[in-house]
Simulated scan of single mutants.
Amino acid sequence: MRRKTTRSKTIIRRKPKKKTSFFSGKLRTYSIIGFFILLFFGVCYHYRNGLAYYFSFKSDKLSYEEAEDKRITDIRNFQVLEKHEGKAIGFDVSEFQGEVDWDLINSIESKYSLEFVFIRATAGNDKVDSRFAANWRSAKESNIIRGAYHYYRPNENSLEQARLFIQTVQLRKGDLPPVLDIEKLPKGQSLDSLKIGLRRWLNAVEAHYKVKPIIYSGEKYYDDFLKEDFSDYLFWIANYNFYREKIGDDWLFWQFTEKASVSGIKGNVDVNIFNGDVEQLRFITIE
C-alpha cells in the first residue's frame, strides 16, 4: 500500500517596498540645484576682478557669439596679468598682423606696459617674413626689447634653415637670444631624426651668435618630446587653457593668450609673460 506524500507549500514572504518620501526626493533635487548655484558663485568670486574689469570698461560692438568669446578671453587675460604683477609683459608679431603702428604700441588696456616683443624672422629653409625688416627696425626705434624667432619645418634641412635665419637676423647689444619655434611633428622620419635636426639648428645658431638659443613650443609638445632631451635649454611655452593661471616655474616665457588686443595692431595678438621683472629680462639680453 503506497503512502501519499504530502508536499508542504513554501511561503515566500516579500519585504514591503519602502515608500519614497516626497520630501526626500525634493531635498535631493534642491541639493543638486544648490550645489550648482554654489559652484557658479564660486567661479564668479574667483574671477571677480576680471568680471568687474570687463563689465566696467568694455563696450565692444560685436555679434553675440563674438562678444561672448571675447568676454571670456578678456576676463582670463586680466586675471592672468593681475596674478603676475611685477613680471615683464610682451607680445609677438609676424606678417599675419599686417602693418603695425609702433607709435601706438605702449601697453595692454592702458595698465600693463609692453616691455618686449618677439618678431618672426624666417620659416623653413626659404621663407623670410615679409614684415620682419620693418618690425625689427621699428621695435628698436620704439625702445622695446626685441627678439627674433625662426619657425622650424621638421621635413626641411636643419642647417639650411639655420643659414637662412643667420643671413636674415643681425642681433645687437640689448636684443634677446634667438628663438627656435618647433610645433609640428615630422612626416616620414623618426622623432630621433627630428631631435638631431633641432640640435644641428641650435648648435649652428649658437656658434654664430655666441649665445644659447631659446626654444618655443606648446606645453604638451614640450612635455612629450622636448623636456628631457633638451633640458639644457630655456623654454618659451604656449598654453592658452583657461585652467592655467600661472607661469610654470621652469618656463622662461609663457605665451598665455593668442587673443589679446593691443593698440596699434589690428586683430588678435599673442601676449607673453617673462618669468621675472624688466631688470631680469635685460640681464638675459645680448651684451
Rank of each mutant, 00 (worst) to 15 (best):
M1T: 07
R2K: 14
R3V: 12
K4E: 11
T6A: 12
S8A: 14
T10N: 11
I12T: 10
R13D: 08
P16W: 00
K19R: 15
K19S: 14
S21W: 05
S21V: 06
S21R: 12
F22L: 14
F23H: 11
K26D: 05
Y30R: 09
F36Y: 09
I37E: 06
F41P: 03
Y47A: 00
G50E: 09
A52T: 13
F55V: 14
S56L: 08
D60E: 13
D69G: 06
I72K: 03
T73C: 01
N77I: 07
F78A: 04
Q79P: 05
V80F: 03
L81H: 14
H84E: 02
K87Y: 15
G90S: 11
F91D: 06
Q97V: 03
G98S: 08
V100Q: 02
D101M: 04
D101V: 05
N106K: 13
S107L: 09
I108Y: 13
V117Q: 10
F118N: 08
R120M: 07
T122M: 14
A123G: 13
D126T: 02
D126H: 09
R131Q: 11
R131T: 11
A133H: 13
N135F: 05
N135P: 02
W136T: 06
E141T: 14
S142E: 15
S142A: 15
I144F: 00
G147D: 12
H150M: 15
R153P: 02
R153F: 13
P154K: 07
N155H: 05
N155S: 05
E156R: 03
L164I: 11
I166P: 00
D175S: 03
D175I: 00
L176W: 01
P177W: 02
L180M: 11
D181I: 03
K184H: 07
G188F: 06
Q189K: 12
L191F: 12
K195C: 02
G197W: 01
L198W: 02
L198I: 04
L198P: 06
W201R: 00
L202G: 06
A204P: 02
V205L: 00
E206V: 01
H208N: 05
H208K: 09
H208P: 03
I214A: 01
I214C: 01
Y216R: 00
E219V: 15
Y221F: 15
Y221H: 14
F225Q: 07
L226G: 01
D229A: 05
F230L: 04
S231P: 06
S231H: 12
L234V: 05
F235A: 00
A238P: 07
Y243M: 06
E245D: 06
G248T: 03
W251H: 12
W254I: 02
Q255P: 01
K259H: 15
K259W: 11
S261D: 05
S261P: 03
V262G: 03
G267H: 04
V269W: 01
V271E: 12
V271A: 13
N272R: 10
N275Q: 05
L281A: 08
R282L: 11
F283W: 08
